[in-house]
Amino acid sequence: MSSTDRPDYLLCLQIAGVGEFSQDNRTAILQPGDLTLFDTTRPTTVISSTDYRNLCMKFPQHLISLPPDQVSQLTATRTGAREGFAPAAGALLMTLNQLMDTISGRSRILAAQGALDLITTMFQSQLDISSPPHPAQPLLEQVQSHIDNQLSDPELGPGTIAAAHYISLRQLHSVFHAEGLTVASWIRNRRLQRCRRDLSDPALQAVSAASIGMRWGFKTASHFGSTFRETFGQTPAEFRHEATSVSPETDGCTD
């Protein structure tokens, strides 16, 4: 495997044979039922047996709401078939592989979102990043909840958020930085998630894509369109038409 420009993660389930995967100076040797993770922007080496088969799910890194520097600790590490959430994640990959070609539209988007929620939970458990809690975690959660409630306000930004919580801008940025995040990127990604959800909703087909973007706080249709395309590789209209572009891709892989 070689590196690519788009920052995706690749979660792989070993189906048959033995695979040896190396990335970031680590090597994972997988048996059937085992899982491992890759960052597609970095080189990966695969050595496999002749009967090797695996199933991979690819998804944009920004859809995992965990600090990237911590998730990077999981690349090319083996998660045993019976370890933690691995049985559930393995069953999920198999189910998605069987069903994704038979469902479409909002159902496909919801299935993808559910899959990402489970994967995020598995990563959290493996990293043990929720315990003990960071001293600033309650404030971060409070601020993030405030952001979700104010996404439709086009004036939402670090200044208004800091004022609403009676903290300095420096403290606000520090709380996010401690988790490997930035305030601006968090607001942008939450808005894009809401827009993506609404664009995939058949009940909102009569609402223009531009109106959806502005409903969730983008100041202009052009800003919404360019941000959406930069993030997802499609215009809002193209995404709405396909309603599948940011769903995880599942592929049976053989080497």
Results as ranks from 00 to 15, higher is better:
residue 231 T to H: 03
residue 46 V to W: 03
residue 246 V to W: 08
residue 9 Y to A: 09
residue 103 I to T: 03
residue 34 D to F: 02
residue 248 P to L: 09
residue 166 Y to M: 14
residue 226 S to T: 08
residue 116 L to M: 09
residue 88 A to N: 14
residue 248 P to T: 13
residue 120 T to F: 04
residue 54 N to D: 08
residue 166 Y to L: 15
residue 205 Q to G: 00
residue 71 V to R: 01
residue 35 L to N: 13
residue 57 M to K: 05
residue 128 D to W: 00
residue 247 S to A: 15
residue 8 D to K: 02
residue 202 P to L: 01
residue 69 D to Y: 08
residue 2 S to E: 13
residue 112 A to G: 14
residue 40 T to D: 12
residue 107 S to D: 07
residue 19 G to Q: 05
residue 253 C to Y: 09
residue 17 G to P: 13
residue 102 T to A: 04
residue 143 V to T: 13
residue 205 Q to R: 06
residue 222 S to K: 09
residue 223 H to P: 01
residue 54 N to Q: 10
residue 106 R to Q: 13
residue 63 L to V: 06
residue 109 I to P: 03
residue 203 A to D: 09
residue 242 E to A: 15
residue 136 A to Y: 01
residue 150 Q to Y: 13
residue 99 L to I: 08
residue 191 R to G: 02
residue 144 Q to P: 09
residue 250 T to I: 12
residue 133 P to F: 00
residue 50 T to S: 15
residue 8 D to C: 02
residue 23 Q to T: 04
residue 202 P to I: 02
residue 114 G to V: 12
residue 207 V to G: 02
residue 168 S to M: 02
residue 237 A to D: 07
residue 29 I to P: 01
residue 100 M to Q: 11
residue 61 Q to D: 07
residue 33 G to R: 06
residue 217 G to D: 04
residue 20 E to S: 14
residue 204 L to D: 12
residue 75 T to V: 15
residue 219 K to A: 14
residue 5 D to N: 11
residue 200 S to Y: 05
residue 232 F to P: 01
residue 71 V to K: 03
residue 244 T to Y: 09
residue 36 T to W: 08
residue 61 Q to S: 10
residue 89 A to I: 15
residue 9 Y to S: 04
residue 198 D to F: 10
residue 143 V to I: 15
residue 53 R to P: 09
residue 101 D to C: 02
residue 157 G to C: 11
residue 4 T to Y: 11
residue 175 V to Q: 03
residue 22 S to Q: 12
residue 116 L to R: 08
residue 184 A to Q: 15
residue 88 A to Y: 14
residue 255 D to C: 04
residue 44 T to W: 06
residue 200 S to T: 11
residue 113 Q to E: 14
residue 106 R to S: 04
residue 246 V to Q: 03
residue 100 M to P: 01
residue 163 A to S: 13
residue 81 A to C: 13
residue 51 D to K: 15
residue 52 Y to W: 07
residue 240 R to V: 09
residue 74 L to S: 06
residue 27 T to A: 13
residue 171 Q to C: 00
residue 85 F to Y: 15
residue 250 T to S: 13
residue 117 D to I: 14
residue 68 P to T: 00
residue 53 R to Q: 14
residue 122 M to S: 04
residue 56 C to P: 03
residue 182 T to N: 14
residue 254 T to L: 10
residue 228 F to P: 00
residue 52 Y to Q: 11
residue 197 R to F: 06
residue 138 P to I: 05
residue 25 N to G: 09
residue 125 S to W: 09
residue 131 S to I: 00
residue 140 L to R: 05
residue 72 S to R: 07
residue 246 V to R: 05
residue 140 L to Y: 06
residue 214 M to G: 03
residue 96 L to V: 07
residue 94 M to Q: 12
